[in-house]
Nucleic acid binder design. Structure first.
Length: 1135
RNA sequence: GAAAAUAUAGCUUAAUGGUAAUAGCAAAUACUUGAUAAGUAUUAGGUUGUCAGUUCAAGUCUGGCUAUUUUCACCA
């Protein structure tokens, strides 16, 4: 007894997924898919570690589907694809979560709760939702190794990070320096940008702003400026909202491409005549148009409005290098003091910077390197030096004259606080150094704990000198295959171009400690690169007596204990010893968590302490994929470390997927409540439809508007159709006991339709492969969809239905007729091959359903030895089976059929009513040949008896021609419009000339002194839009004319078909089996008796009747109506 | 403030610079019926976000603007 193909009541995708999930688990299919490829070429994939302290969302499903499908595809292609999962466990989000949980703030750590306890809580909390993540991973069918993930807080992982850091240290890429960071003097602490983005930190406040006047120094490099405009002295105007930074001023920045004006005017406070430089575009901000060239002579202190005149226009670039007098000189900011900090510094110069705008201010930016990130950068670049004349409490240091000791903002809520900024402004006014002083309202960040304004302040931090390899990073980035390419060149490329050194320092608690120990005086430091090294150094420290042994423990035990967890506070208990016996303590910093994940290629393998060979085989990655938000996160740190450590890319292809928005295009947020719960979605629709929808609806990098309706459509349209097709196959294959035990029938011996669908199938394989290879899964999925819906189901199966359910006729000896038998087997084999191949093609995208389909098929035939589609090789197309001529022929058949059906529809003639013939105007012998090849299909599909061609040269039909813009446009250029018009208006004789040879379009060419323009059949498109006496339908150059004449013969045949249809309905209503034979008894007096007798044989064959009897009276009768005739009859099932 | 992506029918989506812009869903109408919780046909639905430019020819190339989304910055 043959096994049966499972048949189902209805499609239940979640059920299928469930079943297959269990199957995978039981037979370790994932493991097998890797183990069986041992020794094969590997395809390297890196999993970007998610943080498990938050719930997974629907956007995780899309990026994971993408990762999974690539890995599954490559596995099926024969590569070994290892997929180690990972967890990102350090960092601020974790810490903030824990702070919230414990109801504490950063301040309390180490006080209300010990660091040890706090970190233990972090360690526990960080994997809080790991179960949920694992569940999602399983449910959505994401194959990744969950049992041996890398976890960034594990000692081995940290050890590799330390190794990386030491490598960088050895190369001189790890250094300590200052950086400008948000700082709260009131709280005495630096703030992370995250803290700065707390709600309510940015407030509108009014500050005293000053436009200060910097007096230019006349020397060799500036002589031209003075002499060109015949002035004795001039000032640069620069605006600031923080006058307290003015004593620390070291430069003025102008925009290199901004036009500046030298303006003659007066100082509104001192009324002295002055000449000032500011951006030309900003003149209206300070001067009224009507006062231009005003009366300079009569200006006095009573005149409110300043007369002014432009003396010269100067390009910003030309100003660079000019020196100016220091605005607020004091003991603390002399050149000597500056050079004590920065030897050879060249301050008090005009420099250029691209960040300068003419939006506000004067177009000249006061630059105090200590108090602004841009200023700092500009200062470094131009060697201005750096002055920090404000201490960490927020007050001026000693040596700033009368301002020393005063707070730059009211940080202490002093009763009689007077604003030092106002006093500075007053001083400038008196000294003829202020051009405009006013209150200015702007948005400024405040410390979220003290509510006091923050300042930007230089703080010590550790950096990685990424700028040292900037060019190399840019160069290597060009070798990376970015999907989409614009992210690589644009977002990422621009980022690289403007790269700054990587600030590694974080002053938190739960993270990888920076493994640098140094002596108190900073004279000696050591960077530790391994646990072994740490133990050796520790031993030395014990030996030197710097570390004191605890009672009751041996030194060895203590070393074990101290190195058992490389986190705070334990590492901070370790004191090492310098070469001359001084104690060395660890620097306070933790490192940026992005370093953790960026180093995963090395750390996940505990390289170089283990797995040296594995690492060699697993670096760089062939493929990674994450959300586009990782561009400057993980993608960057991976790349940076790859280049810094190994002078290599870390990944060859990277796909950055876009965002998932709600169906209205809004961002999903918990607050709005439009968040999609991935678990619910997977439960209702199953992972296959969900994945298919996510992949085929939009390219991964476009943002996706997530709409449940879309999944429903996928479920119904694609999976429903594919399921139906399978059900259809299973139904009849089970009846006929088809199990592919017969030898495969050669393609050449199968029917035209079989050859066609197999050709299309092979074309499909080719296109799907190409798309997968190019990381275009969206196109691959849509191709599969089109094939299943349009070609397989709607054309092949529909046209072939009869071949499956029609019993094989017998010959005289009561045996099956061999040819008919073969044809039926060919149909089964063809449909089987299509379904089987589809299961493999769709497997990467919808792994559960694909495996279900595969197993249902293969479970009966056993044609493949693998018990899962995912262990199979991806199908390989055969160029030999692809028949382009056949494919285009079939398109023709579909077009013609569709045209005929539309004509039938228009004239109300049912398909069941046969028609005699259809006329098609011919386009030549090839054209006719093509159609004749599919004539049988057209006739059957449309119930037409013959297809006739109207010869091309007949004068019966009217032809029209239209210009072929593509071919003519290139030749004619600007004459195109004229030619198109001319061609449209050609008469029939002229058209015939065009079609039969060449035609001169401009006979009067010599008169007009033109080139001759000849056109031929290639240059026009021919249509037929009129055939006298016929209803016609047109699509492109194809025209179909239907003969609607109904002869009595045709009518009778139509009647017979209608009759069959009615009887079939009765069979179905009575739930007869497909194979049940019947007897038919018809009431004698019915009007159509003659027709039924005439078509007796046809009718009996169709309805599986042995005979049709006519009787006077029929009991248990049914009454049917055919073409307005009532027929009373009785259908009896034969037993 | 800067950069990037996107914008085509009510929705989703296609279109090497070349005819009159492609399909599906939804809508309406009819048909079909041994794949039927399906299928087929027909109809309607479009100023291709907007304004310019390049071109014989623009949904497509260039520029400006607008909207949405993202990232970075918030600084004088």
């Amino acid at each position: 007894m043959n096994k049966k193909y499972p048949e189902y009541k209805q499609l239940n995708l979640p059920e299928i997924a469930n079943e297959i999930e269990h199957f995978w688990a039981e037979s370790s299919t994932f493991q097998k898919s890797i183990d069986e490829r041992e020794g094969h070429e590997s395809f390297v994939f890196y999993e970007g570690p998610p943080s498990a302290n938050g719930m997974p969302g629907i956007h995780h499903v899309i990026s994971r589907t993408l990762k999974d499908l690539v890995c599954r595809y490559k596995t099926m292609q024969g590569y070994q694809v290892k997929r180690k999962g990972g967890w990102d466990t350090h960092g601020l989000p974790v810490e903030l979560g824990v702070e919230k949980l414990l109801g504490i703030t950063k301040e309390d750590i180490g006080k209300k709760i010990s660091i040890e306890e706090y970190n233990a809580t972090c360690r526990r909390e960080v994997l809080k939702f790991k179960d949920k993540w694992d569940e999602l991973t399983r449910k959505m069918g994401y194959w990744v190794d969950l049992d041996h993930p890398y976890i960034t807080f594990e000692n081995n992982y940290i050890e590799t990070l330390w190794w990386c850091l030491k490598e960088l240290y050895k190369k001189g890429y790890l250094y300590e320096s200052v950086s400008i960071q948000p700082y709260s003097p009131a709280a005495g602490t630096g703030l992370s940008s995250h803290e700065l983005n707390q709600p309510g930190t940015y407030k509108d406040i009014k500050d005293t702003s000053v436009v200060a006047m910097f007096k230019a120094v006349k020397n060799d490099s500036s002589k031209w400026l003075f002499e060109d405009s015949k002035v004795e002295e001039l000032y640069f105007l620069a605006w600031t909202t923080t006058p307290w930074t003015l004593p620390s001023n070291l430069g003025l920045t102008v925009g290199p491409r901004i036009q500046y004006a030298l303006v003659q005017t007066f100082n509104p406070y001192t009324h002295l005549p002055i000449n000032v430089i500011l951006a030309e575009g900003l003149i209206p901000k300070y001067f009224k148009k009507e006062n231009e060239n005003g009366a300079v002579e009569t200006y006095n202190s009573e005149v409110k409005e300043l007369p002014w005149r432009i003396l010269a226009l100067i390009n910003g670039e030309k100003l660079a290098g000019i020196k100016y007098e220091q605005l607020l000189p004091s003991a603390a900011n002399t050149l000597e003091k500056i050079r004590e900090i920065t030897p050879n510094a060249e301050p008090f110069r005009i420099i250029t910077g691209d960040f300068v705008t003419t939006e506000d201010g004067t177009g000249i930016v006061h630059t105090a390197p200590a108090f602004g990130a841009d200023d700092f950068k500009a200062g470094q670049k131009n060697n201005l030096g750096i002055l920090t004349l404000v201490d960490k409490e927020g007050k001026f240091v000693e040596g700033v004259g009368e301002f020393s000791g005063r707070f730059v903002k009211d940080y202490k809520d002093e009763k009689n606080y007077t604003d030092v900024n106002v006093d500075i402004s007053v001083k400038l006014k008196k000294e003829n150094r202020a051009f405009k002083v006013e209150k200015y309202e702007h948005n400024y960040p405040h410390c979220w704990r003290t509510d006091k304004p923050i300042i930007y302040y230089p703080l010590d931090a550790w950096f990685i000198k990424t700028t040292a390899v900037k060019d190399r990073m840019i160069e290597l980035n060009k070798t990376i295959n970015w999907k989409p390419a614009s992210t690589g060149t644009g977002r990422f490329g621009n980022w690289l171009e403007n790269m700054v050194d990587w600030n590694l320092s974080r002053s938190r608690f739960w993270g990888t400690p920076l493994p640098v120990w140094r002596t108190g005086d900073g004279e000696e430091e050591i960077c530790i690169g391994s646990i072994e090294e740490l133990r050796t150094e520790l031993q030395r420290s014990f030996d030197a007596g710097v570390m004191k042994p605890h009672e009751g423990k041996t030194v060895a035990e203590q070393i074990d204990e101290l190195t058992s967890d490389l986190h705070k506070p334990f590492v901070d208990k370790i004191i090492l010893v310098s070469s001359n016996g001084m104690p060395m303590e660890r620097v306070a910093d933790l490192i940026d968590v992005w370093f953790d994940s960026g180093a995963m290629p090395y750390a996940q393998l505990h390289y170089p302490f283990e797995n040296k060979k594995e690492f060699k085989d697993n670096f760089p990655a062939d493929f990674i994929a994450e959300g586009v938000d990782q561009t400057r996160g993980w993608f960057y740190t991976l790349h940076a470390l790859g280049v810094l450590l190994f002078d290599s890319v870390a990944y060859k292809t990277v796909v950055s997927n876009g965002l998932v928005l709600d169906k209205n295009g809004n961002k999903m947020s918990k607050r709005v409540g439009n968040v999609i719960d991935p678990f619910e979605t997977l439960d209702i629709f199953g992972p296959d439809a969900t994945r298919w929808y996510l992949i085929t609806n939009a390219s991964p990098w476009d943002s996706l508007k997530f709409d449940i309706e879309g999944i429903k459509e996928v479920q119904r349209k694609f999976f429903g159709t594919l399921y139906n097709t399978y059900q259809f196959f299973a139904l009849y294959a089970n009846l006929d006991q088809f199990s592919y035990k017969e030898g495969s029938i050669e393609i050449g011996h199968r029917s035209e339709l079989d050859q066609w669908i197999l050709s299309e199938l092979n074309s499909l394989i080719k296109r799907v492969m190409e798309n997968f290879d190019q990381y275009e899964p969206t196109h691959a999925g849509r191709e599969i969809e089109y094939f299943v819906n349009e070609q397989l189901s709607n054309w092949y199966v529909r046209l072939c239905r009869r071949r499956f359910w029609k019993p094989v006729p017998l010959n005289q000896n009561g045996e099956n007729i061999i040819e008919e038998m073969q044809d039926k087997i060919a149909a089964y084999q063809t449909l089987y091959e299509c379904l089987d191949t589809i299961s493999a093609l769709m497997a990467p995208i919808s792994p559960f359903f694909a495996d279900w389909l595969y197993k249902n098929l293969n479970g009966v035939t056993g044609r493949q030895k693998e018990n899962s589609v995912h262990l199979r090789k991806f199908p390989i197309y055969s160029e030999a089976i692809i028949n382009h001529a056949l494919e285009s022929r079939m398109v023709m058949a579909q077009d013609i059929s569709s045209l005929i059906l539309s004509l039938r529809k228009k004239s109300g003639v049912k398909v069941r009513q046969p028609l005699q013939k259809v006329l098609i105007p011919s386009h030549g012998a090839d054209f006719e040949q093509q159609i004749l090849g599919v004539a049988k299909i057209i006739k059957a599909e449309t119930n037409i008896k013959e297809i006739d061609f109207l010869p091309a040269d007949n004068d019966f039909i009217k032809k029209r021609v239209k210009a072929n813009f593509k071919s003519l446009g290139k030749k004619l250029g600007s004459k195109m419009k004229w030619a198109a018009e001319k061609i449209n208006n050609l008469n029939e004789i002229e058209i015939d000339q065009v079609l039969s040879g060449t035609f001169l379009l401009n006979p009067e060419f010599s008169k007009l002194k033109e080139e001759e323009i000849y056109i031929n059949i290639e240059d026009v498109e021919v249509t037929t839009n009129e055939i006298p006496g016929y209803e016609i339908a047109v699509k492109g150059s194809l025209t179909v004319a239907l003969d609607l004449t109904l002869t009595p013969e045709l009518e009778k045949e139509g009647f017979a078909r209608e009759f069959v249809n009615r009887v079939q309905n009765i069979r179905k209503d009575r739930n007869f089996e497909l194979t049940d034979k019947i007897d038919l008894i018809i009431e004698d007096k019915n009007p159509a008796k003659d027709i039924i007798i005439e078509f007796n044989e046809y009718i009996c064959a169709e309805i599986l009747a042995e005979k049709i009897d006519f009787q006077k009276q029929v009991s248990e009768a049914s009454i049917i109506e055919v073409n307005n005739d009532q027929i009373t009859l009785q259908v009896n099932k034969k037993t």
